[in-house]
């Protein structure tokens, strides 16, 4: 084989790989949208399910998912960022820190259904939070915590040391240098990865299966101890527990479209934040 032929073959393989990836994505989007589009309407977004889940909309599930996601951010973001600050700026590199880091990375690889069981055992039963938004959000928070810690660590590490030196040389304490210089500089990267991981959490089914989600409730969540409907679980329930699959299937796909758009718009927020904040820095 000539080198020229090898070169050409190599190029073709790469182009084919791109083509396959894009094709799958397009087919995927087309399928979900075409199967779900028949039910999509404003009332689908703003009404509760009716007639044993065969009619009506998914409003309570949207609200439930937003509620869960919001609480998840509230729990996981401060803990994740503080842990990352400690690991990067305070902890001395050594066996202990490496063990902690390995543990965090291992946690990131645990299947989400296991988190669901953990949440059931600890939050629902042991701490008596019951099946509730609180239990679900705490479970989701633990699920996304490793990602937030890792991403924040990377973001903090990428802040040049010369900024820290400059702050110290001006008489800043360690805390001041971190809070006034390092974290603001790392914030765009911390925020974007946190938001993206939380977008992921919004779409998770297994962690909320036993901890927060319910098949149907007419009641809107008024307290964090209420159980809620949630989009991913709603889809799962429609497909498995329904009485009339023909009418429920389109509703499930419609819900999938809404969930997809929700996650995409969360990601879009992250992209916009990153774009706007990155324009300001050029180191």
């Amino acid at each position: 084989m000539t080198r020229k032929f090898k070169q050409g073959f190599w190029l073709i393989m790469m182009r084919l790989s791109i083509l396959v990836s894009v094709l799958f994505l397009l087919v995927f989007l087309f399928l979900i949208f075409s199967k779900g589009s028949s039910v999509l309407s404003l009332s689908f977004l703003l009404e509760a399910p009716k007639a044993g889940m065969t009619k009506g909309g998914i409003f309570p599930a949207i609200i439930g998912t937003l509620y869960l996601t919001g609480l998840t951010i509230l729990f996981s973001f401060p803990i994740g960022v503080l842990a990352a600050i400690y690991l990067t700026e305070y902890a001395r590199e050594g066996i202990l820190v490496n063990t902690i880091r390995t543990a965090i990375n291992t946690l990131a690889g645990v299947p989400s259904i296991v988190f669901g069981l953990f949440g059931l055992a600890v939050f629902v039963n042991m701490l008596h939070f019951g099946v509730s938004v609180l239990s679900g959000a705490l479970t989701l928070a633990i699920l996304v915590l490793p990602t937030i810690i890792n991403a924040s660590e990377e973001a903090i590490k990428s802040v040049p040391n010369s900024f820290r030196e400059a702050a110290y040389a001006l008489g800043a304490t360690k805390r001041q240098s971190i809070m006034k210089v390092v974290i603001p500089a790392a914030l765009p990267n911390i925020l974007t990865s946190a938001i993206i991981s939380i977008g992921r959490a919004a779409g998770e089914t297994a962690p909320i299966l036993f901890t927060a989600a319910t098949f149907y409730t007419r009641k809107f969540p008024t307290s964090i101890f209420d159980e809620v409907m949630a989009l991913p679980y709603h889809i799962y329930a429609l497909m498995t527990e329904g009485t009339s699959p023909q009418t429920q299937m389109p509703i499930a796909y419609g819900s999938a479209v809404v969930l997809l758009l929700l996650v995409l718009s969360i990601d879009l927020v992250a992209i916009i934040i990153r774009y706007r904040m990155r324009r300001a820095k050029t180191w």
Partner: peptide
């Protein structure tokens, strides 16, 4: 006060 080798203004 101290001034360093490479200009290091804060990203502010």
């Amino acid at each position: 006060g101290m001034v360093f080798q490479k200009p290091n203004p804060f990203p502010k």
